[in-house]
Write a protein that binds this DNA or RNA. Structure first.
Lengths: 184, 184
DNA sequence: CGATATAGGAAACATTCGTTTCCTATGTCA
DNA sequence: TGACATAGGAAACGAATGTTTCCTATATCG
């Protein structure tokens, strides 16, 4: 099950929801249409499962990279680096499933719309939490208003994935430094 | 011709390339399939024409809002406001055609890929130009390295459109102020 | 061992897709 | 006026879409 989701995710990432045909999903997963429809109710069901798998996997990866970092500022910096890495190379070209879902958000039905919304809200909450932690450990000014910072960072992270579809971000260190100025 | 493109653009913005069926385009433009295929070679041709129309219209709108602004910093701030407005309300929900194209960039053929690339490169160049202007008129520090700033701003602008698909950005002034800290 | 549940595959389903063909108006120029 | 070019529409095309049905193995449990 995990294997079929792991192989279905790239299809949706590259082609978006509409662009990902059952044929492509068959090819990627090695399964046949009948099997797919036995495991998932719908094509939407496949997407929904792939989506939550992707989001959870991504959170796990980020948590892994954040582990051991002491200050809130360091964790924000590492989060930026994580997204810059994700926006580079073949990973960047493959794109972000959240972003792909976002594009067809109008079309997608209620449940998927909510999942999308929750994914974005979680990212925002995580950023706010890191900012608050930074304020408590002294790595971020305590009079900084965190909400607009979180919103800007959230937008920036998604945007990096977007332009990463076309070409790699250059000079990660300079980009991180520039982005971090928003929380000075 | 301009009218049919203007009515086709929202379809692609909402549904992406694959999601925009000929039926939807027929409905939106009021034309029939035969007429569409007489005017445009392909569905890709319709998208290509809609895309350049959208980009040019957008540039025109932005130039209009930038007119009369004296300093480079003010122009950057207004550009941010322009994107925040575009990310709000029904305009925001409709989404950005560049972003929609970006998602399926892997799938799209060479000419469209290039058009996408050019649109992004133009935005980046415009940001760099405004930053340089700001350095000359004294509104931006002259020792600022402009390339990373432009890259961050470019990413941020696209990202704002992305999250604007789901909900409106809050407190535009605070967001602009936060974003502008990257060029301090 | 035998009955049964289950995961997966083959093949056909109706529908929708992008596309083409052919026809009908309307307007232009000699 | 009459020949012709052109813009648009109606209808059908094959191919691809999402989906379902039915069958075949394999494994589980009595």
């Amino acid at each position: 099950m995990e294997a079929v989701l792991a192989s279905a995710v790239p299809v949706f990432r590259e082609h978006g929801y509409d662009g990902a045909s059952i044929d492509l999903l068959k090819e990627a997963t090695g399964l046949t249409a009948g099997s797919l429809y036995k495991a998932f109710k719908d094509k939407k069901g496949v997407f929904a499962a792939a989506f939550t798998y992707y989001v959870e996997d991504r959170q796990r990866q980020l948590a892994e990279r954040l582990r051991g970092l002491r200050t809130g500022r360091e964790r924000i910096a590492e989060t930026l680096r994580f997204y810059l890495d994700s926006a580079s190379g073949s990973e960047g070209r493959q794109g972000c499933l959240v972003l792909a879902g976002l594009i067809e958000a109008t079309t997608l039905d209620g449940a998927l719309h909510d999942a999308l919304w929750r994914a974005l809200a979680n990212n925002r909450s995580a950023l706010i939490a890191m900012l608050r932690e930074g304020q408590e450990d002294g790595s971020i000014r305590s009079d900084l208003v965190v909400e607009p910072c979180a919103d800007i960072l959230l937008g920036l992270l998604q945007g990096l994935r977007a332009v990463g579809k076309l070409h790699d971000p250059a000079d990660h260190d300079a980009l991180v430094a520039t982005a971090l100025k928003t929380i000075d």
